[in-house]
């Protein structure tokens, strides 16, 4: 009996708000991202004015992880696939940059596509196995494949092994080094985030995206229409892997260092937390979730070294009491029942 015999299982992820909802929701889908990206664009100038220049580096990191969280939301929120190995895609993108640099390849026009392709290919191969299963099996298997990438990175003694790999200079473009300037790098990351945001929104609104969302709600119905849910979920899985690979390449450039720790399953868990905090099934929600998560981490760690003692119970409380994510706690409820 193949796992796909059990196609009519209830979907993993709870129901999302209606794609076509009230006017308030339509406005939110326009206003929130516009405000969000405007805030990111204005941040460096504001940081200068306030004399808080560390904010630029912090916000760069936020945007990179927001990109990774967004890519996870494509399969988790829209596809209903609880993938617990997403950090591996991020790490593979980062390692692609690190290993390429170690081997003398620093041209961005080659390195970035390489990072994206490597992560997407890994997603395609592991997804082809994982998507044969559902439910807890899927969660465990994606977790296991993520851990496989983690241990493989540790075993790469030529590329730093357990200690990680320092990158001596950011990726070049056509011989120039535009990314070396932190301010310029900030806007490159912002540009990537904005472009991926628009692309991701286009994908979920497309015919493909409709099938993906339908497969979350009822794989059996999708098959009865003559569409193989597996093919669409696998494609989405690979696309999400590619986006996360891009985030990884940016992360490697940001920290100028890659390490197996990028792929630890705790990092995968953190990405899920970001998506949930922002409310699944909304890409700007994933960005907000990354801001909230990393902001909390920053703020709490100023409070105490043992901030996780506070964050762990906070997460449990969010799960038990705020099921639609933090956005659902805002006064404007997107649901129209």
């Amino acid at each position: 009996m193949t796992a796909r015999a059990a196609e009519d299982r209830p979907p993993e992820a709870p129901a999302l708000p209606a794609p076509a909802g009230t006017r308030a929701r339509a406005l939110g889908r326009l206003l929130v991202p516009v405000l969000l990206f405007a805030a990111f664009a204005a941040l460096p100038a504001a940081a200068d004015a306030l004399g808080q220049t560390f904010l630029v580096s912090f916000a760069t990191r936020v945007m990179i992880l927001a990109l990774a969280a967004m890519s996870l939301d494509l399969i988790l929120g829209y596809g209903g696939l609880v993938s617990f190995g997403h950090a591996a895609f991020l790490g593979i993108g980062a390692y692609a940059v690190g290993i390429a640099a170690e081997e003398g390849l620093t041209e961005g026009l080659a390195v970035f596509p390489l990072a994206i392709a490597a992560a997407a290919l890994f997603a395609l191969a592991t997804g082809a196995v994982s998507l044969r299963t559902r439910g807890v099996y899927f969660i465990m298997i994606t977790l296991a494949f993520g851990q496989m990438a983690f241990f493989t990175a540790i075993s790469l003694s030529a590329y730093g092994g357990d200690d990680g790999l320092t990158i001596w200079g950011r990726t070049e473009f056509l011989g120039g080094t535009p990314l070396e300037d932190d301010r310029a790098f900030y806007f490159v990351v912002l540009g990537c985030l904005a472009a991926c945001y628009l692309l991701a929104r286009a994908i979920v609104a497309s015919r493909f995206g409709r099938v993906l969302q339908a497969a979350r709600q009822s794989p059996g119905r999708v098959a009865a229409l003559g569409l193989d849910p597996f093919a669409y979920q696998l494609a989405a899985y690979a696309i999400a892997g590619g986006f996360a690979g891009l985030a990884g390449a940016l992360l490697a450039n940001h920290t100028e260092f890659v390490s197996p720790a990028y792929m630890s399953w705790h990092r995968s868990g953190e990405l899920i937390v970001m998506v949930i905090l922002g409310g699944m099934g909304s890409f700007h929600g994933a960005i907000l979730g990354a801001i909230v998560y990393l902001g909390l981490e920053e703020a709490l760690s100023h409070l105490t070294e043992h901030w996780r003692l506070l964050f762990g119970p906070f997460l449990v409380l969010v799960v038990l009491h705020a099921r639609g994510g933090l956005l659902s706690l805002l006064p404007v409820r997107p649901r129209d029942g």
Partner: peptide, 30 residues
């Protein structure tokens, strides 16, 4: 077995889309 999060129109439009051919189209809004 209808898709609960989709509107009635979207439910049927998805079937029409499946009938119309490839659904590997990524950019135009359905």
């Amino acid at each position: 077995n209808v898709l609960p999060d989709f509107t009635a129109l979207e439910n049927v439009a998805l079937a029409a889309q499946a009938r119309a051919g490839s659904s590997f189209r990524f950019f135009r809004p359905a």
